[in-house]
Design a protein around this nucleic acid. Structure first.
Lengths: 213, 213
DNA sequence: GTCCTGCTAGTCAAGTTTGACTACAGGCGT
DNA sequence: ACGCCTGTAGTCAAACTTGACTAGCAGGAC
């Protein structure tokens, strides 16, 4: 599963009501075009598809206030909210070796109650542990690891990143349990979207690594 | 870019001439259906597409020797070989936060000369270093990291996995420079495909982590 | 004999992703 | 008055991915 639905649902939900271009700007503000498949086409497609599935409610509104074609505004429905929470929980809980979904989920993690966030992260660690032991067992045939030649390096890579992922997760759990950040029901929520007309302070100077994925 | 083309080209090349089902079996033998998008549909699509682009040469051959529909055999063309090497080099060189492409590339790394493999891995480390510093600069605004709230955890995740990736890469470089494995031009190449009729010893018991990507 | 299961080999429709493209409004220079 | 550039908002075809489906043959069960 890609991160696009989670990102789009999260963005629309933060606004209450948003059109595609607004979502697109939020994702750029979050730098999501750098670390996920958040291209214009994908965003508009996700909006339409989720509207068709009843996760979003589409309002065909007046032509834009500032030039350009007429725009459609979207709102998250009750099912959409459930889907959002389901995607969020799954993204935190499951170890799938792709960082984009997890990155998105961390951005929204404070939408969950603190205790649940911790519980999901612990499930994640358990999943990593299982994956790790499956890999080490699978790739240790009777003849010993040498029989695999350089192929053993693949296993080594996986084990290495599983361990690193577990370590990061444990650190996050510790900080959350230590009282860091403001979770659902604990006061003013963190606001991470651009208001109508506000400009993106990070519009230029985005990281852009030796990126060519 | 997904890993499918690299995997398919690599598999066909190892056989010299292979039909889709053979490629499919190799990828299963390698466990690729677990860690990449190597589903039947994708494999056959990649074969057809690359044949259309001249990277593979298709031979419409006689009906199969063991039941089933007639099959098409493929061979890697000269352009295909160049594309294979280009994909392989790119996959090793560039840090794109997706493990599937790198895993595939490590499986084929011994197709390159030892010195080139090391050089590419060093480029990879440099890429990671650049990405890491871009992230730490971008996400350290004047007001200090606290101003980001929980969003700083995303940066933390990226830095963590960049560091882990660099460490793994350094380890691999050290082993290769220490004389491990057999690279191009150094003797009998490693053979990692199933011969016609050979059965897959790993057919069952594949890892299958808490997988739901 | 014929039914059933499993293996071989691949197709297909539906959904998703990509990157390039369109179209409109306002402002700016000349 | 005219073209030109920027910003707004979104469309589109082509490629790719997914998961379910088809169809032929072999071998054993009954």
């Amino acid at each position: 599963m890609s991160a696009i639905r989670l990102l789009v649902l999260g963005a629309v939900r933060m606004h209450g009501r948003a059109h595609g271009y607004q979502v697109r700007n939020d994702l750029e503000y979050w730098g999501a075009h750098e670390w996920s498949n958040a291209k214009p086409g994908s965003i508009y497609h996700a909006l339409k598809q989720m509207a068709k599935q009843g996760l979003l409610l589409a309002h065909e509104t007046a032509p834009s206030t500032a030039g350009g074609p007429p725009r459609t505004e979207y709102e998250v429905t009750a099912e959409g909210l459930e889907e959002y929470r389901a995607l969020l929980r799954d993204a935190i809980r499951s170890y799938d070796r792709n960082m984009d979904v997890l990155s998105a989920a961390v951005g929204f993690i404070v939408d969950l109650p603190r205790a649940e966030a911790v519980a999901l992260l612990k499930e994640r660690i358990e999943g990593i542990r299982e994956w790790r032991s499956a890999v080490t067992e699978y790739y240790t045939p009777e003849e010993g690891p040498e029989s695999l030649g350089h192929i053993g390096e693949i296993m080594n890579l996986w084990v290495h990143s599983a361990d690193s992922g577990a370590e990061w997760t444990r650190g996050l759990i510790a900080r959350i349990e230590g009282g860091a950040y403001t979770f659902a029901g604990e006061g003013d929520p963190f606001v991470g979207v651009l208001a109508e007309g506000e400009e993106n302070p990070y519009a230029t100077g985005v990281p852009d690594p030796g990126d060519d994925e």
